[in-house]
Design a protein around this nucleic acid. Structure first.
Lengths: 142, 142
DNA sequence: TGCTATAGTCAGTCTCTCTGACCAATGTAG
DNA sequence: CTACATTGGTCAGAGAGACTGACTATAGCA
């Protein structure tokens, strides 16, 4: 059966997501929800403003605030004042958050390795290249 | 910036989804939600049982029942008794539902054409082939 | 004729998301 | 340098969508 391109993209995406959450849960980070991760993933190295996180995750700033509150309570992020703007605060990844990132990254690497073993190095490289190219017309934040 | 494979897959998927829902809304089918679509998409030609829909959409039968209720009220599906089992009822796509399917399919075709224009026919074919191959190790319902 | 499995519903709860209203700090035009 | 629009963020309330647990009714089988 031939599926539409959207679903073809979604199937491996969901597989990757499931594996990452399973790995996080196994490492003691089972309290992170997909909604929280969606925001957490987008926190920049030197911290991000709530509004930016909301825009990138394509949710309202209220929703982003709600999720960051949870992440903060669970110890994955911390909020510090933005030195350049007294209205804003920067959301930063905490030590515990960084530990979770490490676990998640390892899981991603493992899944990518499995995909490469199945597809072959050449086609895995092609896949990345094509998807990166496709981002130009599908990513509103490219 | 190089992203992980999961996110690279997700970005065009979300772009496709947004376009399809925009097209549905423009054609007067603006009352369908993503959650409803997830179930609706999986209704077989000759009708499906609620339990089967729930399993394929990876939600509980209660959630599936809730969404089918909404689709039924909005006129996209109808429920008929299953002649082979008095406990069960078959969920079938109605005439209005079929009209929405036509609109969605056209939107998918349009987006795929845009992607092909950007990537070139050769790489679009490669993308489909690679993703189809990847399904073998990522699709629990292959 | 019972026992177990299956199809589906009912009731209650939790998470995530939204809209609308609001406050405080910033930037800008007169 | 003061008025006004813009921007960053919070508060309050509501709705959608998902879950668990308990239940009814039919089916299939020993």
């Amino acid at each position: 059966m031939s599926l539409n391109a959207g679903l073809l993209l979604f199937i491996p995406y969901r597989a990757m997501e499931s594996r990452v959450f399973a790995a996080l849960a196994a490492a003691g980070f089972g309290d992170v929800t997909p909604a929280q991760a969606k925001v957490f993933q987008r926190i920049a190295e030197d911290g991000s403003r709530l509004t930016d996180l909301a825009e990138q995750a394509q949710i309202t700033k209220q929703s982003a605030g709600f999720l960051v509150d949870q992440l903060e309570r669970a110890g994955y992020v911390e909020r510090v004042p933005d030195p350049t703007d007294a209205r804003a605060r920067l959301v930063r990844v905490s030590a515990r958050g960084a530990a979770a990132v490490t676990v998640a990254a390892a899981a991603v690497a493992e899944v990518e390795a499995e995909w490469e073993a199945h597809l072959g190095a050449r086609r895995m490289t092609q896949l990345r290249a094509i998807l990166t190219d496709l981002r130009e017309i599908t990513d509103p934040y490219a």
